[in-house]
Amino acid sequence: MIFSHVSFSYDQKPVIQDFSYEFQKTGVTCLFGPSGCGKTTLLRLMCGLEKPTKGFIQEAPANPSVVFQEDRLLPWKTAKQNVDLVGTESEKWLQLVGLKDSLSQYPAELSGGMCRRVALARALAAPSDILLLDEPFTGLEEERIQEIVAILLEYAKEKPVILITHKMEEATMLNATIVNL
């Protein structure tokens, strides 16, 4: 995925200005930068939810998997049903993120960290060519972060993972390429 002189404005207020970068085809890339610098907007451009106001994106992913800043789970569906909505082998993915005993629980019955893991399982279960993660470790305990890191590193062997984080140690754990915005 190549960003060429991409700019994006929201209500005529510039959010991203003349951003150019060629993202690697595998491995993890971390987007760093202060709040409001346009990291989330960049992720939205990558997954096609926004269009650049100037410049263009080449080789944009056809099937992105996204973990948004919020979990965005359907409250009327169980953890398993939320994953089933977009992907296959939901039980396997939920087990992998440590939720095998919570398959039939609704988001309101899960803790914040558990909801985050359901959102991650949903992104992993969907057939995708890139994984886009906006602060995916929010609310997760340290041991859970280690498990998720291992899963992401496995995914990054074949496909790109792009994530937003504020913590340098998370980027280090993921052997990530850093992009400062």
Partner: peptide, 19 residues
Amino acid sequence: KLLEVAKVYHLPAKKVWRE
């Protein structure tokens, strides 16, 4: 926000209505 999830994961219109 839920509709954006549907858009990103290319859910068909029928499924978006139902789910």
